[in-house]
Amino acid sequence: MGCVSSKQFKGAAEHEDPAVLAKETTFSVSEVEALYELFRKISHSIFKDGLIHKEEFQLALFRNSNKKNLFADRIFDLFDLKRNGVIDFGEFVRSLNIFHPETPLADKISFAFRLYDLRGTGYIEREELYEMVLAILNESDLLLSDEAVEQIVDQTFRQADLNSDGKIDPDEWKAFASKNPALLKNMTLPYLKDITMAFPSFVLNSGVDD
């Protein structure tokens, strides 16, 4: 795409160069530019400051800026690489790159581990898994007895916690996820392969001076 106008990034000059982001990720320069369209839309939905705030992320995900969800919170926190409470364009592109269909499975496995390691201890602990099961049951309006939830968690630990130390370490997670690839389905977004078709406006508009 040789027709990228710097004008497109004017007013958002703090955003990283698409060429740099393309070099670091699976995305091409024109795909990064298309992602900028998406980023601009989300980051201007409420605060209009060119950064994605939690409320804007929730609005884009759930059509509701107030909807709380443990897993959306985790995704937001992991996207927020600088840990400053907002997602900038570079963070958006680098994080979405994990979800690209062509990103190596090992990267997806590692991202999922960090997602589920709620307290950042380096392990997925039993209490964390219990908390996440309660969250998904609550989200799905499913009622299960405490005993049933314990059984689900116990069963999972029997399969995943190979050294039976009560926590799942990164190697155990890697083995478990490799054996159960369906668990990583949510780590791939087919949309990312056709991003320039989904958001062509940048490509169409680029180079147009007004």
């Binding site: 998406l38 989300i42 884009a60 995900l61 759930f62 059509r63 969800n69 443990l70 897993f71 959306a72 919170d73 985790r74 995704i75 979405l96 979800f99 589920y116 898994l129 996440m132 099961v133 969250a135 998904i136 049951l137 989200e139 799905s140 299960l144 049933a148 939830v149 059984q151 689900i152 968690v153 069963q155 999972t156 399969q159 995943a160 478990f176 159960n180 369906a182 668990l183 990583l184 389905k185 949510n186 977004l189 949309y191 989904a198």
Partner: peptide
């Protein structure tokens, strides 16, 4: 049957992971 459920399989169905929604216009 709870005993045959995999906790991670359950969790992975959360709407919170549905990043495809970000792409909807």
């Amino acid at each position: 049957k709870p005993e045959s459920m995999n906790a991670f399989a359950l969790i992975s169905r959360s709407q919170g992971f549905n990043l495809g929604n970000l792409f909807e216009k």
